[in-house]
Design a protein around this nucleic acid. Structure first.
Lengths: 201, 201
DNA sequence: TAGTCGAAAGAGAACGATCGTTGTCGTTTA
DNA sequence: TAAACGACAACGATCGTTCTCTTTCGACTA
């Protein structure tokens, strides 16, 4: 018979993750020690280790959540805008990412997560799943724009989806490194590159 | 009066950096210890520390070289192809990057460097310089394509340059994470997106 | 309903391991 | 032969983690 409810445990876990996110966004995964994390959360080591088996588990939890966030944002925006132009859908995705980044530093965590994916098999697998899943889903969206002649019919929908992902990933990278203001004009460029009217191919 | 020539010292330094690159590409900057580096180079700590003041200096040297490589490749390709189509120039840049990655794991080091740029001010400054310099140079190239009606005249050349950088950065990211085969069809997509003929805008 | 008991939560000191770095001493070469 | 190179042991610091002890709170009992 547990002393506390499951709701309490979940809330506590989330509280620790929030503190970890702040600390990690400030100094990076590796440069942030567990003691830094304890200080940021205002808790002792014993308290934190009751909810996470180790530092790796904290990192993985944060990265997996970050993956889920980014994936969900891209999916939501591109699908709901399937009737507008391709450029407008892309611009909307970018603007959503930017807004989220301003409030919780999404991009910084994301960039760090990509590097971690190269080393940690668990994170690597999660990213591969995100990217390949996103690619096939975006391929369907892209195919729609190919049929309506706003994207060239020549290349495969999958290859165009890869370019789409590249744009979003590269945008997040610049967002993290240069800040939101430096890339504020990207949405306009995307809308102009792929407007509603037909494009040569 | 030094025991050896300056040429010897330079060669030795480069030898150590090559070993470090291999070790870092395999395990990442942080997960690779100096002892790992000594083993990879087949040298003692004393030998390495005679050429580098510390681990940070090794990392910075490798990252700065990586920045120089990527910047040079993008500049060379986009400038020499200024008479072809924008898509062809982009595809050529991507193919050059892919070839280099196959031979020395360029993309993996690059992705790690981006993360390090968030934390180390020296690396961060180098990257900001690369990105902003590249952006203004690419803006001139892009402006050329805007004048010849192969890119829409509406958006600023700088904003289109940011999108161009995003594509290249995002491509490198996918190259590192998914491997060359998974993104082999990207060049074709780029050529199809921006062919020689005029594009609506 | 008040009191008691047991288990979970949390604090905090401390430990073992590892890492980056240094210092010493032999070796090599202009 | 003097100075740089290089090997190697070892050091201090730091980090992730554990262990012990106290505190807290829900459940059961009278």
């Amino acid at each position: 018979m547990p002393r506390t409810s499951e709701r309490y445990r979940d809330a506590r876990r989330e509280y620790i993750l929030d503190a970890a996110r702040r600390a990690f966004a400030r100094n990076g995964f590796h440069a942030t020690s567990m003691h830094d994390l304890f200080a940021e959360a205002g808790l002792s080591s014993g308290a934190v280790y009751r909810y996470f088996a180790g530092k790796d588990e904290v990192v993985v939890a944060i990265v997996e959540d970050n993956i889920r966030q980014i994936g969900a944002m891209i999916r939501a925006v591109t699908e709901e805008r399937a009737d507008g132009s391709f450029g407008a859908a892309l611009a909307a995705a970018v603007e959503t990412i930017q807004a989220k980044h301003r409030e919780n530093g999404l991009a910084g965590i994301g960039v760090q997560a990509w590097t971690e994916a190269l080393r940690d098999p668990r994170i690597g697998a999660a990213f591969e799943e995100l990217l390949t899943g996103l690619r096939s889903e975006l391929a369907e969206v892209v195919a729609h724009y190919q049929r309506t002649n706003t994207l060239p019919p020549g290349p495969s929908a999958e290859s165009l989806a890869s370019v789409t992902i590249a744009i979003l990933v590269g945008y997040i990278q610049q967002l993290a490194l240069l800040g939101p203001d430096a890339v504020a004009d990207v949405p306009d460029a995307l809308r102009a590159l792929w407007p509603s009217s037909a494009v040569a191919g």
